[in-house]
Design a protein around this nucleic acid. Structure first.
Lengths: 339, 339
DNA sequence: CCTGTGTAGGATAACGATATCCCGCGAGGG
DNA sequence: CCCTCGCGGGATATCGTTATCCTACACAGG
């Protein structure tokens, strides 16, 4: 059993020794300063290659003040939307030569939020992206220190307190989805909302606005979790009601759960009830019936959020929120009401 | 327009000044050294609170050699399995007081892999977790420097070259799933495999082994991408064949796509064809018919991977691979063959 | 009184990089 | 011949922290 000697990455001094130059000269070569003789530069390059030298960003940023780390704060979930947004941020950051740390906020409780923020900022960070799809994210934003570059990524129409945000205008999308159902001839559209702790989400607000504008009495909101089981439970109750002919769901999971419960009770979608989801997860197009839903480009959302942060870090005060209106994708789960 | 003065986080010296002690004393207080008078300690604590001081991990680790950053290398995807595994790693790391950076490897090409590894190790890292579900991950592992603590997380039965690994024994699971279908009375089980670049995945190997052991001629493997569209295309072809009565799919997406194609052509699941998936994504239990599939605990996988890395970093050479056999979840998409 | 021991806490060096300073050198102008 | 100027590159300070060293003091034992 050989003892593994602990890993020691080569440092500038090792390169300098190997190339028989001083440490600052190596730095100059690596940072592309002029004023270095071509021959020395070549010796340095060779030494870098042969030793497999990799600059230490921590030391570099400590001295230079340039930071190459971006911190993402998100709710504690592997949800499709979160994962996709993170991917968008990471890809954009990687292309810009920045690394990404991810910290999950276990809940909206002060303790959890504080711990998460402390960990997220433990390593010196150029700025933070807060994924604000839930309470945990919102609370996290409020606990970030004054002056740190911060951007928000999330569903639109929420106040972000002067912080630049990349948004998806869920409100408009929900309104369009609701209008679409009304145009099909439904006299009312019901709504199953995800948990949002007090305030209503843009999805809920858009739905309400569409009904109000059409002069329709807004029915009671059905509150659910974001998961399919929760949608299923509402489906069990809706199956026994004649007055529900169209349902706008807070997300695709809820919609799928709802549809299964309806099917189990012999209620047909879309003949008896129309169902609309939110997110357009990859699988829902394969459903039977395939789900009419709102397509959200989360990857683009992440990329836009990172772009804003980049400008903010560069001191470009003109960085202003960007909003995208997602598109309704009409599939098989919606139809005119019977009779 | 007020000019925002750039963010300057308070440092130890600020705290020391505020508490009227020397810098090392503040450090001693924060690191819980004895030999500090209670009164001074209290002054320091107060100063820390009032300034909102947060230690700079980069500086700390530079001096002390203790690293609190873990790097995760993964394929460029927001797949359910990847996202879930990352969540498991992050949660375990957070509980251990470590931060996590995530770097995606765009492809298996040398260029992409090298760039990803460079970025992943740019900030000084205690070690790396490589998500090895695809070629990109495998290549990334080979490009990591000698001596860096590395663990692999992925599907079992692959060689990991002496590197500790947290594994899910896909081979055994696939074998069990295949055996189950044979016990139902199917004379053969067909298989749609995901892309694995040369080698076969544990899923494919387990399937083959089960058939071979049962003395059944192994049919041609159907090769697909990991997505539902790809499963759909195979479904179109299978619908015209009488000899296919049971299909083991490389993952749930493929299975769902397959089932939709079969349904579109009037082939009934499970009466005409039985279908088994892999992963047990949250939605597939709601399918019609609900999908029989292999439940993979990716979050646990991530937690185990981090645990291994932690021991490796601590110099515990006894860290040895851990393997979990996932369970087959029988639902509605499987049944005995007709007649 | 001298010495030894243990506590308390400041002074200083060091981690790996970059910014700044500064010196030597050769060319060009007065 | 002296002075300036541009280049090339080493010496040194510095970033925020912790490890090490060292001094000061109190107290006990001989």
């Amino acid at each position: 059993m050989t003892t593994q000697k602990p890993y020691r990455a080569p440092v500038l001094a090792d390169v300098a020794r190997e190339a028989r130059v001083s440490v600052p000269t190596v730095s100059r070569v690596l940072n592309g300063s002029k004023y270095v003789a071509p021959e020395l530069a070549q010796r340095v390059q060779r030494a870098v290659e042969s030793l497999g030298y990799r600059p230490n960003e921590a030391a570099r940023s400590m001295r230079s003040g340039r930071r190459t780390l971006v911190s993402v704060l998100s709710g504690a979930t592997a949800n499709y939307g979160y994962a996709r947004t993170l991917q968008g941020i990471e890809t954009a950051a990687r292309r810009a030569g920045m690394s990404v740390t991810i910290t999950m906020v276990e809940s909206g409780e002060d303790d959890d939020v504080k711990r998460a923020v402390d960990l997220a900022l433990a390593h010196p960070t150029a700025g933070a992206v807060v994924l604000e799809f839930d309470r945990a994210g919102i609370n996290a934003r409020h606990m970030l220190p004054e002056g740190l570059p911060v951007v928000v990524a999330g569903g639109g129409s929420r106040r972000t307190g002067g912080i630049p945000a990349a948004l998806i205008d869920e409100r408009t999308a929900a309104r369009q989805a609701t209008d679409y159902l009304l145009r099909l001839g439904h006299e009312c559209v019901h709504h199953i909302a995800g948990p949002t702790a007090g305030k209503h989400s843009g999805r809920t607000e858009g739905w309400r606005a569409a009904l109000t504008d059409a002069g329709i009495t807004v029915p009671t909101i059905m509150n659910a979790e974001w998961d399919a089981a929760s949608g299923y439970r509402w489906g069990e109750r809706i199956a026994g009601r004649d007055d529900v002919t169209a349902v706008l769901c807070g997300n695709d999971e809820i919609a799928i759960g709802l549809m299964r419960a309806l099917a189990d009770r012999g209620v047909r979608v879309p003949q008896d009830v129309s169902v609309v989801g939110f997110d357009d997860q990859p699988l829902v197009a394969m459903w039977q019936p395939s789900l009419t839903t709102v397509d959200q480009d989360f990857e683009d959302l992440g990329a836009r959020a990172f772009g804003l942060l980049e400008r903010l870090v560069a001191g470009d005060g003109s960085a202003t929120s960007s909003v995208v209106v997602p598109q309704l994708v009409v599939r098989e789960s919606t139809a005119p009401p019977r009779g």
